[in-house]
Design a protein around this nucleic acid. Structure first.
Lengths: 258, 258
DNA sequence: TCTTATTATAGTCAACTTGACCATTAAGGG
DNA sequence: CCCTTAATGGTCAAGTTGACTATAATAAGA
């Protein structure tokens, strides 16, 4: 962003010292790819679509698509999410969280042409609907993360990076509440942590820590849930709105003196 | 990444269902922008270049440039860093850390044309050389972060995002050592934390915490430094090589019960 | 209806960590 | 030689964590 763009190698005369010439630069295609996560039956699931075109025809891939001419990457991500999954941008099951992950730009990542892809991680709350594939992505499906292997392009890598990021952000942000419906119990919240991290947590200690962390959750009115539950009714909470947790809720991993 | 690219609006006939046609897609220019940080005289500095072309002529900007045809964003970032600052990719003052920050894709962020920029944060160790501007970036300069305002394009925003990211990563990674020379004292390391976070830390407590965090630092042989120092010689340490700290070194901010 | 399984919630306690200090050591500069 | 400066070594009370026990409230089943 600091110098005059280089002229296209095939035609140096197109160099534009003062004005600009859109045809004068190396053209790239820009796409977004989405790692959409949800928690289902105590397992982390990711939304995959089956490709109908070459390359990687009939292989599973992350949903995504090309940026429109005057569209930001984030707008494209929201649009693709709605188009390919039926998750309306502002509907009741709108993803509570959409976050840019990173950009993948290996020159050979797409065999057709030079494609730079901006990857996003999205989280949708737990009691999820099956995706109703609109448009050409009729083959959208929730897949358990463990079974999401052998994806098209470099999507295995993107998915792994997304999982890492989400797991890490559970520690020091209130992100876990994005996996929950508007009102949830502490048991459901704990389930999210256990599922994403792949660990089991001590129930009383988890509750003590969550309630001691300001801004993580706030009580919802006075309601207790009973319907369906097998044990004692649990108090309902809502997301506390805090972006960053102090102190963080650390994973139970290798600590100071293992 | 999941469907056939849309045809260029001006010429739908270019649509390529199976093969590909590089001219058939909306063309984007792709650049990298670099937020290169260092600690100098107890203040965080960032590397800026003065623009010699329109737009934003004579304004300060982050170093960066266009991707080459068969170059990844990271390779472009390393190349630009070397070209514009004289920091050799593998030399003694090579940045110890280069990390992708995020991608900026607002359609209007560059008035000339559609430019998507992948931003990187780079850290170079403390006893820094003045940048010797090679190429067209003869006007590269270290600038105290507080004075880096009114940059070209959306670089104010990128710089703020980069600072946030670096500050956050000091907490839970060993990133601070990237600001230090190969061998450093705990006082120098503390200086890094204090400078980036803008706080003062208790010396004995900082040392206790650092030494109790496995993988943050390891003693360098047996050497103590004396030359120049005014007080008792300090033991020298090296970076411990741990990517992520357990437990983290939290900033002294609002805690559980303020 | 009584019992049992299940889940939520309350509480205890020792080990560990943290923040605020004070003390000592080892230089360099008048 | 004394003073200043900086590194390092401790102490101590308060707070936090991990492991664990106990009690409460509900649904399902005998």
């Amino acid at each position: 962003m600091t110098e005059t763009p280089p002229a296209r190698t095939a035609d140096p005369a197109h160099s534009a010292p003062e004005g600009y010439d859109p045809g004068a630069f190396e053209p790239f295609a820009v796409t977004v790819d989405l790692a959409v996560f949800t928690v289902r039956e105590a397992r982390l699931h990711v939304l995959l679509v089956r490709r109908g075109e070459q390359p990687y025809r009939d292989r599973w891939a992350l949903p995504g698509g090309f940026l429109h001419p005057r569209e930001s990457a984030e707008a494209a991500a929201r649009r693709e999410l709605a188009e390919e999954t039926g998750l309306a941008p502002e509907g009741p099951y709108a993803p509570l969280h959409l976050e840019q992950l990173r950009t993948y730009s290996d020159p050979d990542r797409d065999p057709r042409m030079r494609v730079v892809s901006v990857a996003y991680a999205a989280l949708v709350p737990g009691p999820l609907p099956e995706p109703r594939g609109g448009g050409d992505a009729a083959h959208a499906r929730w897949t358990a993360l463990a079974e999401a292997r052998g994806l098209a392009f470099d999507h295995d890598r993107i998915l792994a990076d997304a999982h890492d990021r989400v797991g890490a952000k559970l520690e020091y942000t209130g992100l876990a509440t994005a996996f929950c419906p508007p009102e949830f119990t502490l048991g459901e919240l704990q389930q999210v942590y256990e599922t994403v991290w792949g660990v089991t947590l001590d129930r009383p200690n988890f509750r003590r820590k969550v309630l001691a962390t300001p801004g993580l959750v706030t009580p919802a009115h006075d309601g207790t849930r009973r319907t369906g539950g097998r044990g004692k009714p649990a108090v309902l909470y809502r997301a506390g709105g805090a972006a960053v947790l102090h102190p963080p809720l650390l994973r139970p991993e290798r600590r100071t003196t293992p």
